[in-house]
Design a protein around this nucleic acid. Structure first.
Lengths: 338, 338
DNA sequence: CTGAAAGCGCTTACAG
DNA sequence: CTGAAAGCGCTTACAG
């Protein structure tokens, strides 16, 4: 429990010098610095974040707001964020709204505002205007991942293009009966992600003069279970069975594959399945997908935040509108049976 | 950016009274309190955590150390923790070591010690003695989930019994060739979890006078992919194929089921599979398992911590050595083919 | 129940 | 390069 005074006394200098020597701010002679460091080490001195933050106005602490940590995309992005932040020596304060309005309100109305955060990263949250205002009123930098809010830096993939590309892939293989499995309304925590992807799907169909069949517009909660259920239903229907399905997440695509199997259908023979994500399980399932680097998005958000905070030593990300994705061809898609 | 002085002035009282009225500490007349609250509301005043923490020595902030957030158990426990903490109005500082020694060192050697935390919750980390010392030296309460460290409060399930129960279930069905799929050495971030479960398995075999075959002692990284690979290997072997497998996690059990399917084997006809966890996907796979309430464990850890911090209004958990688990019978286990 | 004042442990102009 | 001192925005004995 040694304090800065103890170190100062032990090193024979003033507390001001200890502060400067240890923080790296201000000029200190090499000899003094060494002396101070040795003293600090011996006493097991660790700076008090609270005192330091109060005096300096900087907390070295980033708030991260997520709707859940239980889905692949969220936990993977979070891994990227934690990794980046720990390397930069920053703390991470996690706010998990868990889809509960009440929690969300206390996060935005209270927790985020208590001046202990240097910046905030939000994960696919569709911020309400008043929430944006609340954040702005604190004057802290905000970086969003997975959406687009006016006046807020955003890391995101091109949902529209990804979905149209996935759809075009199936069309190019000869499919004309293509279903779409997107996110359900109640799970739309994000910024129009669901609709942007669905728009891309419909656009691709339209370009190929293919009609959009309402009964092929499916939606679930982005989980394997959800995808399983919906695809099982549509493939069990007496008529109008699609020969292919575009899934808005890999996990739903896994569910689709499992459902097809349970119905005795062959993938891709009876049903082609394409996902979006780049989930590690994709290889095992032979899933064709459009991979996004979720971990990389988390890392990019951290770099962005550090940059906004004026940290040196941060490789500035090339300013680009969209985070890159990659088409990964595997065995879950093929030409339809004739 | 209104401060406590602004509120005091606006309400016509001293800052001391504002502090007492808003924090609930100390006596304030109802009328004064109302006046202060109104003024605070109008000015949009939010207390500065840093100043408050520095002055009071309490941070309302709990550190949570996890080895990863990418596995079912960890993300689920974390959901339970975030939920409990947000309801109690506490912040959560997340430290994800990510299995990297370097990160782990900076967490224990530095971040955890900076006096901004009221307590620490660790998730299945096998603490080194010097790490326990480091934590103890800060004098903050520590609650562990998923292990047993001397002198530290721990929430955990009875790994030995769970595994022996799972094994006994298979033996009772008539199996004698039972494999065990546990965690690999390099993934042993936890407190002997892997070995406790393996011990339980071996104990059950022993009780039934069944030998332990080394080639049936498998290990993977707790993922679906890992389980798939190992089970596929053992079931493809020219001889000594087991008729059942006890998996130390549900995710590995899903991998086992997928592997069996890919080999054209019937589950449970050719291979009975039992898991441990209670993963949401279990129902879809028809997985027999021993369910643990991971979310509940997170919630229990929060209650424990709050209790140690002397929060009133916390239902004290009944002191019990083990967190309860539940046997869930589904369709992945049956008598072996004769 | 309320206020004046010390103090929490740092950081940072300011002066030298 | 270094030090004395003010100040960050609260909380809490102490006194009344």
């Amino acid at each position: 429990m040694a304090g800065i005074k103890d170190v100062a006394q032990s090193a024979g200098v003033s507390v001001a010098t200890v502060s400067r020597a240890l923080s790296g701010n201000g000029k200190v002679s090499a000899a003094t610095r060494a002396k101070v460091q040795r003293a600090a080490e011996e006493l097991g001195y660790v700076v008090s974040f609270n005192a330091s933050s109060l005096a300096s106005g900087r907390s070295r602490n980033i708030g991260v707001v997520v709707p859940t940590v239980g889905r692949w995309y969220f936990s993977t992005v979070l891994e990227g964020i934690t990794n980046g932040l720990i390397e930069a020596g920053y703390d991470l304060t996690l706010y998990n709204t868990g889809g509960q309005d009440q929690h969300r309100r206390s996060v935005f109305g209270d927790l985020l505002l208590r001046k202990r955060l240097d910046a905030v990263i939000t994960l696919t949250l569709k911020l309400q205007p008043h929430e944006v205002d609340q954040l702005a009123s604190v004057g802290k930098p905000v970086v969003a991942i997975g959406g687009l809010i006016p006046a807020i830096d955003t890391i995101r993939v091109d949902d529209f293009n990804i979905a149209s590309m996935a759809t075009e892939h199936l069309i190019a293989l000869g499919h004309s009966k293509i279903a779409y499995l997107g996110g359900s309304e109640e799970f739309e925590v994000d910024f129009k992600l669901a609709s942007a992807r669905q728009d891309g799907y419909e656009y691709a169909l339209d370009q190929a003069n293919l009609p959009v069949h309402p009964e092929w517009l499916l939606s679930a909660d982005f989980t394997i279970q959800g995808g399983y259920q919906k695809v099982r239903n549509v493939m069990s229907a007496p008529r109008r069975q699609p020969t292919a399905v575009v899934c808005a997440s890999d996990e739903m695509a896994f569910g689709a594959i499992l459902a097809a199997r349970d119905l005795g259908l062959d993938v891709p023979g009876d049903l082609s399945v394409i996902g979006i994500d780049g989930h590690e399980l994709g290889e095992l399932f032979g899933l064709t997908t459009i991979a996004q680097d979720a971990r990389g998005q988390g890392a990019a958000a951290v770099r962005k935040v550090l940059q906004l905070l004026g940290e040196r030593d941060v490789d500035p990300d090339p300013t680009r509108s969209f985070f890159p994705t990659e088409f990964v061809a595997r065995t879950s898609t093929a030409a339809p049976r004739t």
